[in-house]
Computed example of a mutant assay.
Amino acid sequence: MTKTPLTVRGAEKLREELRHLKSEVRPRVIAAIAEARAHGDLKENAEYAAAREQQSFTEGRIGEIEGKLGNSQVIDVTTLENTGKVIFGATVTVADTTSEEESRYQLVGEDEADSKAGLISYNSPIARALIGKEEGDVVEVRAPGGPRELEIVKVEYI
């Protein structure tokens, strides 16, 4: 089984969510179930049904996060020597060869992706086109809006 790459920040966010779910949400849900049980008939108890549903969701998310963390490889690009190549975790500044508009992206794991924040999944069309290339290279990206040519202006390992 192959490991899923995660940045240090992405792994930390998952660990924090896991801590929150286990130490805060889970005890609150257990207390809500106990309180709802105290009200009697469980068949027609909406509070009990809602608390059980919340428990199911919480336990499912805990299992999902534990699985992701257990099957991940945390990559800290700040410890790597900057060779100028685009790799997982690198921050890349690119310029559209047509409009000359510059964009800055960090290549991250799928769970960390947030295009509005400049965090793109390493599986996205742009990231796949950039990986392995160097500063000065021009790549063609097959984006949903049609093909685009991007020039790699700068590669940073931050």
Rank of each mutant, 00 (worst) to 15 (best):
E149H: 02
I158L: 10
D111P: 13
V139S: 03
G89W: 01
L6Q: 03
V29H: 04
T83M: 05
P144W: 08
A51C: 09
T83A: 06
V155N: 02
P144A: 07
R52L: 11
G70R: 14
I152H: 01
A11D: 05
P27F: 08
E134V: 08
R52W: 08
Y105V: 04
G118Y: 02
E12G: 12
A95P: 05
Y105W: 08
P5C: 04
G70S: 13
E44V: 13
T78V: 07
Q55R: 13
K3H: 11
I33C: 06
A46P: 15
G84R: 02
R37L: 12
E53A: 15
I120M: 05
E156C: 00
E81S: 11
I152N: 01
E100F: 07
S115D: 12
A38T: 11
T97Q: 04
A46G: 14
E100V: 06
E134L: 09
G10K: 00
K43Q: 13
L69Y: 11
Q55E: 14
Y105Q: 04
D114L: 07
R52P: 04
Y157V: 00
R148A: 06
T93Q: 05
A50M: 09
A31V: 12
V74K: 04
D76M: 07
A90H: 03
A117D: 07
V153P: 01
V25C: 06
G10V: 00
E47N: 15
G70I: 08
R128I: 05
P27D: 11
S121Q: 12
H20V: 13
F88N: 03
A95L: 06
K116F: 09
E53Q: 15
Q55M: 14
P27N: 09
L130P: 00
F57I: 13
D76E: 12
S23A: 12
K133P: 05
L6I: 05
E101N: 09
E47C: 10
K85V: 02
E59K: 07
G118L: 01
T7P: 02
V139H: 04
V108E: 00
A46I: 13
E140N: 10
V108D: 00
E44F: 15
S115R: 11
T78A: 07
L6V: 03
L119V: 03
P144V: 06
I62A: 09
L42S: 14
H39S: 15
V108R: 02
R142N: 13
P147S: 08
R15P: 10
E66N: 10
L18K: 15
N45H: 10
R15A: 12
I120H: 00
A143L: 08
Q106G: 04
V155H: 00
T83K: 08
P5N: 03
L119A: 05
E135F: 00
R61D: 07
L14N: 11
D137N: 07
S56R: 13
V29K: 04
A51H: 03
Q54L: 12
R9C: 03
E149I: 01
G60L: 07
L130F: 03
A32Y: 10
E66M: 14
G63E: 10
S115C: 07
R9D: 05
L150T: 01
A50E: 09
Y122N: 08
E16L: 11
R148V: 05
V92K: 00
E53C: 09
V25D: 06
Q54D: 14
S56N: 14
E151R: 08
N71I: 07
T7I: 03
K154V: 01
R15L: 12
A34G: 15
G132N: 01
E100A: 10
K154F: 02
D114S: 12
